[in-house]
Simulated scan of single mutants.
Amino acid sequence: MIETLQWTTLAICALMAVARIPSTLRRENRSLFGIFASMTVAILLSIQGPYLIIDQALGGTNLANLLLRFVIFGAIFFMGLRISKGFGADSVYRLITGRTGLLVLLAVSVVMVALFFSMDTAGSSAGLTAISAKDARHFALVEYYGAAGRAYPAYVALALIPAMVRAVQDRLPILIRIAAGLLAVGGVAVALTLLFPLIPPSMGQIEFIINYTAVLCFVIGLALIWVAKLIRGRTGASRRTSTET
């Protein structure tokens, strides 16, 4: 089930990225392509087979996992910017791009890198499961490293949720409201990742479900906003044509 969810999510993210290529070449909303492409790379790096291949190419010391974390940071940062600007949530935009947001990003990044290089990361292992199993010290370090990696996405998600809830309740086109609802659900899912240390190992599949629910909600939500914009553009064009005739 988890493997099917992973590959399905990868396919959806990749299709959305490919669909955005023509618009990107026309220099239209290039950030949206970057978000979809980043999510595609992140999902690819979270699947065991591709992860092992990529990490071996990087030296077999799990640098691919560190790369994954920063790809996620980039995706959530630019997604936060696009969503906050698109919905006119200026306070959220400031929380992400202002001093507080940048300090959170910097602090989390420094802690995460420090924890990564304090471990013996030799031997490619998706999710660092083999590293965690080495001894009690490595188990604790992997847990702290994972918590640091989840902190910044959760910060952005928590900042976005109130604005998305307001958008759902606003008098916006139905597709936009549905998109806002999906983005809110995605934000809640990301926030729930902060509770991962409380989930017993026997229920580890829940973590995968929460992670991929967040990605799918974000991707589909952004896609719906794109579709709504296309519909609005075509409707406007048809109205202009009918007026001219």
Rank of each mutant, 00 (worst) to 15 (best):
S38K: 06
S38N: 10
M39C: 11
T40S: 10
A42K: 06
A42E: 11
I43N: 00
L44D: 00
L44M: 06
L45E: 07
L45V: 13
L45N: 09
I47L: 15
Q48E: 06
G49P: 00
P50V: 04
L52F: 03
I53A: 14
I53E: 12
I54Q: 11
I54A: 13
I54C: 09
I54V: 12
Q56N: 09
Q56E: 08
A57M: 15
G59Y: 14
G59H: 13
T61H: 15
T61E: 14
T61W: 14
N62E: 14
L63G: 01
L63P: 02
L63F: 03
N65E: 10
L66N: 05
F70A: 10
F70E: 04
V71Y: 05
V71N: 10
V71T: 11
I72H: 00
F73T: 09
A75I: 05
A75F: 04
A75E: 08
I76Q: 09
I76W: 02
F77E: 04
F77P: 01
F78Q: 03
F78C: 04
F78T: 02
M79C: 08
G80P: 08
G80R: 01
I83N: 04
K85I: 10
G86A: 05
G86Y: 05
G88P: 04
A89S: 06
A89N: 04
A89I: 10
D90V: 05
D90E: 03
S91Q: 06
V92A: 02
V92H: 01
V92Q: 02
R94S: 10
R94N: 08
L95D: 05
I96D: 01
T97R: 01
T97W: 02
G98M: 03
R99C: 05
G101A: 10
L102N: 04
L103V: 01
L103H: 03
V104C: 12
V104G: 06
L105R: 07
L106N: 04
V108A: 03
V110E: 12
V113D: 11
A114E: 13
A114L: 13
F116Y: 11
F116P: 11
S118N: 13
S118V: 14
M119I: 11
M119H: 15
M119V: 14
M119C: 13
D120A: 06
A122W: 11
S124G: 10
S125P: 15
L128H: 14
L128Y: 07
L128D: 15
L128T: 11
T129R: 03
I131G: 14
S132Q: 12
K134F: 13
D135C: 05
D135M: 06
D135W: 13
A136H: 08
H138V: 08
F139G: 09
A140V: 15
A140R: 04
Y145Q: 09
Y145L: 12
Y145K: 09
Y145R: 08
A147V: 15
A147N: 07
G149Q: 04
G149Y: 00
G149F: 00
R150M: 13
R150G: 15
R150L: 15
A151G: 09
Y152D: 07
Y152Q: 10
P153Y: 07
A154C: 06
Y155F: 06
Y155E: 03
Y155H: 03
I161V: 15
